[in-house]
Design a protein around this nucleic acid. Structure first.
Length: 423
RNA sequence: GGAGAGGUGCUCGAGUGGUUGAAGAGGUACGCCUGGAAAGCGUAUAUACUCCUAAAGGGUAUCACGGGUUCGAAUCCCGUCCUCUCCGCCA
């Protein structure tokens, strides 16, 4: 969330920038300003009384030591009155802070100045494209038909075991997925990321810190017995490694990569978009996360985007990078680039990565800070991106590389799969 | 799952009701010393909020978390969470 301080000191700027996200913050912001003023006043009053009580308590202590019990008892009476008034103030203070917090989590991050105006996906800017869209014969098959033809993904059995959106990968497709995971992890390691294996289930505090709670509860699978959530992305556990930490400036940037299975309820998405591998309840993803100094975070963002583009390039997939417009960006992001690959039989672009700079928005909830060389403590900037999500990559690979002999594996992957053709 | 022990600062560790934000040690930083280093000596070393135009300097809170007792709680009581040990079970 945004810091109270920033809103209090820059409310005009906040309102102006929220408009780009098509978020009307007038009411919330003015409420924040009002409550903040009240909070300060209440705190000052309560603190003054507490100081008074502390002072008297010490006096009582020394009076007792001197044996002046009657004087001490008289002072006791005074603190009883003070305690009553402080209690009221404290209750008020707690309530103000709770309300303030409720409001703050409803205010999205401010978009970076380079975010294009716009409301819908059509308003996103195409930044770069690469690779070559293959020309497939007219009878080219979408990946769900190829999956059946070669018997490599069994959607029906997935339904039997669990339900829709939980496919069963078989044979060479299972191997291909394992190959992709290793390929992505190895590339990330070569780019300086440290691999971590996080838990796939997180507690409430973690889900809250990265912003899944309180609003997006219904997107996560929840284990009621244990009060734990299945992760929708490795971003959640990996970013939470740094929750509550004060890092030294020289430890930054922190670069982590993690493979994980991801679980998403995807409540409310149906239709042709969800056919085959396009949208699943469980999928595999390799995620890169960086914690960076504020002044360097945008350089880092561009570096991460280029890194992801490089992966698409190595997999010989046609790709394009979009700079998301204000209306299409996520709640918590300041600037997001989506990387899409072209799935030639479906003839559509599929999002395979979303790389974002959250600036200090996420770090503020995480309380992830760093101590600069001049001893000042500031919030870090956090960034993350998929590198990459598997199912749509698999879909594009299957469709784009189909030949009469079978499905061709891109050269860079062959050392990982151990085979050149799915047939 | 059963029984027990415990959670104190960057770390270790003292502290069972009254200047304890917290002894002591270690670590770290700076200074002195040195030709340079080590050792030694000295100094410093939490966070959040808040008061003050700012600095300087105050105030409040925080010894897992939440509540209670008390004029006063790291210290007593209750609840929650977590860790460890033993037993049982088990990949």
């Amino acid at each position: 969330m945004l810091t109270l301080k920033y809103i209090a000191e820059n409310s005009e700027d906040v309102l102006k920038r929220l408009k780009k996200k098509h978020f009307d913050g007038e009411q919330l912001i003015s409420k924040v300003l009002e409550l903040n003023a009240e909070r300060k006043k209440t705190q000052y009053d309560a603190d003054s009384i507490a100081a008074e009580i502390n002072k008297i308590s010490k006096e009582i202590g020394s009076l007792y030591k001197q044996g002046k019990t009657s004087e001490a008892d008289a002072l006791k009476q005074k603190t009883i009155e003070l305690k009553e008034s402080i209690k009221l103030l404290e209750e008020k203070q707690n309530q103000i802070e709770a309300t303030l917090n409720e409001i703050l989590v409803q205010i999205p991050n401010l978009p970076h100045e380079s975010v294009p105006e716009g409301k819908l996906a059509e308003d996103n800017h195409v930044e770069r494209t690469g690779g070559k869209i293959p020309s497939l014969p007219a009878d080219a098959l979408p990946h769900w038909d190829l999956a059946k033809k070669y018997d490599i993904i069994d959607f029906e059995t997935g339904v039997k075991i669990t339900g829709a959106g939980f496919p069963l990968y078989k044979g060479k497709c299972a191997q291909l997925q394992r190959a992709l995971i290793n390929f992505f992890l190895d590339n990330a390691r070569a780019a300086g990321y440290m691999e971590v294996q996080p838990p796939y289930v997180v507690n409430e505090a973690s889900a809250y810190a990265t912003g899944q709670l309180p609003d997006k509860e219904c997107q996560m699978y929840f284990c009621q017995e244990d009060n734990l959530y299945l992760i929708p992305t490795a971003e959640v556990p990996v970013t939470n490694i740094y929750r509550g930490m004060i890092l030294n400036e020289n430890e930054l940037p922190i670069k982590n990569v993690a493979y994980s299975a991801c679980f998403r309820r995807e409540a409310g998405s149906y239709g042709k978009d969800v056919r085959g591998l396009n949208r699943l309840h469980q999928f595999d993803k390799v995620e890169i996360v960086q914690i960076q100094l504020p002044e360097k975070s945008y350089d880092t963002l561009y570096e991460m985007v280029h890194y992801v583009e490089g992966l698409a390039e190595k997999l010989e997939l046609p790709w394009r990078t979009l700079r998301l417009c204000g209306g299409d960006m996520s709640f918590t992001s300041a600037l997001t680039f989506d990387i899409e690959v072209y799935s030639a039989a479906q003839q559509r672009w599929l999002e395979v990565s979303s790389v974002s700079n959250f600036e200090s928005y996420q770090a503020n909830r995480l309380k992830c800070r760093y101590r600069s060389s001049d001893k000042k403590i500031e919030l870090c900037h956090t960034l993350n991106g998929s590198a990459l999500a598997l199912p749509r990559i698999v879909a594009a690979l299957l469709e784009n590389n189909q030949t009469p002999e079978g499905i061709r594996i891109p050269k860079a992957l062959i050392p990982y799969t151990g085979f050149e053709l799915i047939n």
